[in-house]
Design a protein around this nucleic acid. Sequence first.
RNA 1: GCGGUAUUAGCACAUCGGUAGUGCAUCGGCUUCCCAAGCCGAGGAGGUGGGUUCGAUUCCCAUAUACCGCUCCA
Length: 516
Amino acid sequence: MATQEETFKKIVAHCKEYGFVFPSSEIYDGLGAVYDYGQNGVELKNNIKRYWWDSMTLLNENIVGIDAAIFMHPTTWKASGHVDAFNDPLIDNKDSKKRYRADVLIEDQLAKYDEKIEKECAKARKRFGDSFDEQMFKQTNGRVLEYVTKRDALHERFAQAMNDSNLEELKQIIIDEEIVCPISGTRNWTDVRQFNLMFSTEMGSTADGAMKIYLRPETAQGIFVNFLNVQKTGRMKIPFGIAQIGKAFRNEIVARQFVFRMREFEQMEMQFFVRPGEELKWFDHWKQFRLRWHKALGLGDEKYRFHDHDKLAHYANAATDIEFQMPFGFKEVEGIHSRTNFDLSSHAKHSGKKIEYFDPEINQSYTPYVIETSIGVDRMFLSVMCSAYEEQALDGGDTRVVLHLPPVLAPVKACVMPLVKKDGLPEKAREIMDMLKFDFKMAYDEKDSIGKRYRRQDAVGTPFCITVDHDTLNDGCVTVRFRDTMTQERVKIAELHELIRKATDPKELYKQIVNA
RNA sequence: GCGGUAUUAGCACAUCGGUAGUGCAUCGGCUUCCCAAGCCGAGGAGGUGGGUUCGAUUCCCAUAUACCGCUCCA
């Protein structure tokens, strides 16, 4: 594991050194957990996004895209549950240095009362045997009644405090209930603090007329609030999906592991609307479709696994993650959730608008159920980089650093280089550049020895190097050098276009996804 | 947000209470070459802000950032 951590550090360093990812505002010492993509990173990222977008909107004729604004009406986040659920009251124990959610500590205390009550019942059940009447016992036994009273009182006080977001009261409850830290066993608590995971800002130019609005913590809600717009104007018939790529923002308490958890990140989400009762069938369909999308890239089938959720979020009735093997373990890259009709009905309730679909096949109106596929662009980027990075030992004791990027995603598809910087070779190389540059992202290099130039392209993952030598001027052939094998092949200039196209055309991958 | 560790050039590292040095990389030139060859030349650094001191990159404090652990994670 130590060497894997070492590898991860090297990948981070490599990302910076070769223009993939830079810390944000680095000249001002950076900004925590915010990163910028460099000249190579942005190409790779754009290629990932294009691969995803086309696999959704081209391969599925019932999926269309939208691009919703980052700012949304504040009520959106009440309806989605983010205002409540993204506001965790936290408290630290000063002795053990552990942090807990204050509400969880109090809920545990409630559970303890329930346990005590159950214990009393169990004892009595043993004593009285078959004649035991639990209802009667609970209503009459002194000790049980005492526990019930305490529990109900606590519950009411707790609910009231949570409802008012009264942090002092939450701390007072913890003190009054003599709740101790499970680790240190002490009651030496800090104040309860609120960590709102949503970023907020003001809309409106005058101070008093301004409205507090949030930067979206997920892109999904932009799709839900546009459900009727798209369904009606696009004449969409269920089942159908809406895809979106966009930025989202979360004020993470701890953001770490490079671009894996950032405060500003990009999501690619598709919400698929289905008839109630058919959601689990579609859930399974999308699980398999999405896994094929990942595997088609050829990063290694064994690096993927599903992680099904046992504990489901409040809106879901099935959920799974696609995890990828990073240097720091299997980590979630994509989530697939069966979100029921939670979001649409919640928006209907909060907006007062009817959000339903009339299904002509069964002659009924209903609120559609939703299957969500949600993948983090930055996490996808990281999994591609991690699996591509290799320090390769060569015959002769040399090593080279090479990025085995899938050619479809590679920032630069090919680099043209004259073997020497004279004898008309650079001019010939430029001709080849001009021939290819409208179709592919190309690079040109004539500095340093040919070997050094090959290594430079290896380091940014360019799949092909095209070398122009003296023979080229006579026979119209060039040497194509392949990144992964380092082998070379003599190719006619006229055939270069097709060679590069075949290797870098996403169409080949789409066929795998559809035909599997 | 807590605790620990760290921060010197693009990268890796060194030195020193009083000229900050090396390798790789970068740029220009020579060599003209199919896997980081060689030669000549150039540019580029002490995270930031204070304090101690005649003098601080070095000692002290604060702060920022990163890493590790905890906590959190729709």
